[in-house]
């Protein structure tokens, strides 16, 4: 067991030859292929990284676009809601106005119907009442009532206001006086009326006013004095008319 020099040198040569051959047939091609694959993988990795960065950039861009879109959507939604609210308010006002108009029309129609009905009722009731009163007063009316009515008339002349008294006095001086009585006035009653004119209007005992006398049964009882467009007096007819107006007015208020 020793070292053979020839074999030693031959083995060294063998090793060098093997080194060269393996370098040619093994290491270079294998490493070239491995480098190519590593390069390809690196390229693919770089491409993937680039694609990832592009995807991230695109995702970021999309995110910004989505945020902008969302903001625009919110704004438009708010605008639409505002417009809808305005439209709703407008429609509501219109409907409310229409309803108010309809209700007003309905109320007017109802009031009209009610007024018509009430008017009919009042008119009927007034007619019945005044008719009954007329019949009552006609049954009660007599000369004494007429005399009493003349006294009341004389009192009313005395209670006239200055302006109205002055106007009537002017008419009396001009002889433009017309007395209307429910019954044919007696001379005494005519004298009573003229005296009332002298004392109440003219305030002159010596005056001799001229007047016309006429009979108006519609007055039922009492007397009226007409002087142009002026009129003063006390009649049952006037009281009944007042009563009817008062009745009708009460009915309207009700």
């Amino acid at each position: 067991m020793g070292i053979d020099v020839f074999t030693l040198i031959a083995q060294i040569v063998n090793f060098v030859v093997l080194l060269v051959l393996l370098r040619v047939f093994l290491y270079r091609p294998i490493q070239r292929v491995m480098h190519e694959r590593e390069q390809r993988i690196a390229d693919e990795h770089a491409a993937a990284e680039e694609a990832r960065e592009e995807a991230e950039a695109r995702a970021e861009e999309l995110r910004r676009e989505r945020e902008a879109f969302e903001e625009e959507r919110r704004e438009r939604l708010a605008e639409v809601e505002r417009e809808a609210e305005e439209l709703r308010e407008e429609r509501l006002a219109e409907v409310r106005e229409e309803a108010e108009e309809a209700r007003e029309r309905w109320r007017e129609a109802l009031e009209r119907e009610r007024d018509e009905l009430a008017g009919e009722v009042r008119e009927g009731a007034a007619a019945v009442l005044t008719d009954a009163l007329q019949r009552g007063w006609r049954e009660l009316a007599d000369e004494d009532l007429q005399t009493r009515a003349l006294d009341v008339f004389a009192g009313k002349l005395r209670e006239l206001g200055d302006e109205e008294r002055a106007a009537l006095a002017d008419r009396a001086r001009a002889g433009d006086l017309v007395f209307a009585t429910a019954f044919e006035a007696t001379d005494e009653q005519r004298e009573t009326l003229l005296r009332a004119v002298r004392e109440g209007l003219l305030e002159d005992e010596d005056a001799a006013p001229e007047a016309e006398f006429e009979r108006d049964p519609a007055l039922i009882a009492g007397v009226t004095l007409r002087a142009g467009d002026l009129r003063v007096g006390w009649t049952v007819r006037a009281r009944l008319d007042d009563l009817e107006r008062a009745w009708t007015g009460t009915g309207n208020d009700a």
Partner: peptide
């Protein structure tokens, strides 16, 4: 001697195997 011969055998196997494999390499 046998050392050299079997060394050549080993060398031949390695070189031939390498050539056989590397002739159809793919990346």
């Amino acid at each position: 001697n046998a050392t050299l011969v079997f060394s050549w055998v080993v060398m031949a196997l390695l070189v031939a195997g390498s050539w056989w494999v590397t002739r159809s390499l793919t990346a």
